[in-house]
Design a protein around this nucleic acid. Sequence first.
DNA 1: CCCAGAAAAGTTAGTGACTAACATTGTGGC
DNA 2: GCCACAATGTTAGTCACTAACTTTTCTGGG
Lengths: 181, 181
Amino acid sequence: MGRWERTHEALAQAALELFAEHGYDATATAQIAERAGVSEMTLFRHFSTKEALLLEDPYNPLIAAAVRSRPPGEPVMRTLVESIRQAWSRIDTEDATALRARLRIVAEATTLRGAVERNSGATVAALIDALADRGVAATEARVAATAVIAGLGVALLEWARSDRITLDTALDQALMVLGGA
Amino acid sequence: MGRWERTHEALAQAALELFAEHGYDATATAQIAERAGVSEMTLFRHFSTKEALLLEDPYNPLIAAAVRSRPPGEPVMRTLVESIRQAWSRIDTEDATALRARLRIVAEATTLRGAVERNSGATVAALIDALADRGVAATEARVAATAVIAGLGVALLEWARSDRITLDTALDQALMVLGGA
DNA sequence: CCCAGAAAAGTTAGTGACTAACATTGTGGC
DNA sequence: GCCACAATGTTAGTCACTAACTTTTCTGGG
């Protein structure tokens, strides 16, 4: 692990801790840099925005693969819903708790409303690509992908907040609704 | 029209002009205040954020009314899609051009990705209320409403950018996709 | 007409995210 | 060890937005 990766990790770690302790808004980027033992400027060289410190997961390209395996001629929304169901079917408990910790922070920060959607642009783009291979027009693909990802984001946030539902059932319910049931 | 409304309007007007001239990001709030003949502080007393200068339309409560008129037991996504179709069926050309002008600015500003969604929270809330009257659970309602509004937003942006499609057809296509066709 | 009192706007000083330009220090390949 | 370059530091700034406080402008009752 080179120097770059080490400070990168240190920054992400420090950010998570501080956000959990004092909340997102109440944590200054200067603090994060300090705890990571680094200057503020360096922080912004590693993460282009404060948001990125929280939301820098590479989201599953698994979904895109699943899209390509769906039967042809299927309605777009259904394709997406089923693909997500497939891709997320096996998320270990470990990842789930980590995800929950992050989403809790998002759920509590007013400033971050919409940050998830903005950040999921990469996921949407991947989905559009996969749909294009199936002959779906770009605009329709973008509409459907954005809608599904937005809906999914809401479901995940509610799951993270509630503490009463498993990730699986939360996803199932959301995908059912999005699929038109 | 009292003093408050006059400066309010002057600010919104100045913002639109400057955004159209130089783009959203390249326009400082200080400039807007100056053109409106007012201090920067006053600007923020009228509009809580820079975004609000662009996105301060009261979105149709018509949609919520339409939701309540749909047949019971209908799938949620279908209810929403049909309600929107109903509510937006008669938008005059005048409103359409104004809308287009605003959306063009949004489409060109990277910073504003997600701003529309964040701002449409009120619309989503209204839809959730209307759906609650029909016995739809809160989480499901939120998932569906967020998804539909997000998808709709994408369609509107593409329409504003393209210049080749009418608002009606853009909406039709999007709603069809969202409805599961 | 005048003069409280409130509504609207101004002033000043600051915070916090982010950027630009340039100087400095570590690190890995030869 | 040396050298190129990657990684970090420093400084000084811009811009959105806030807080505390003062001043101007309107408005209605005597």
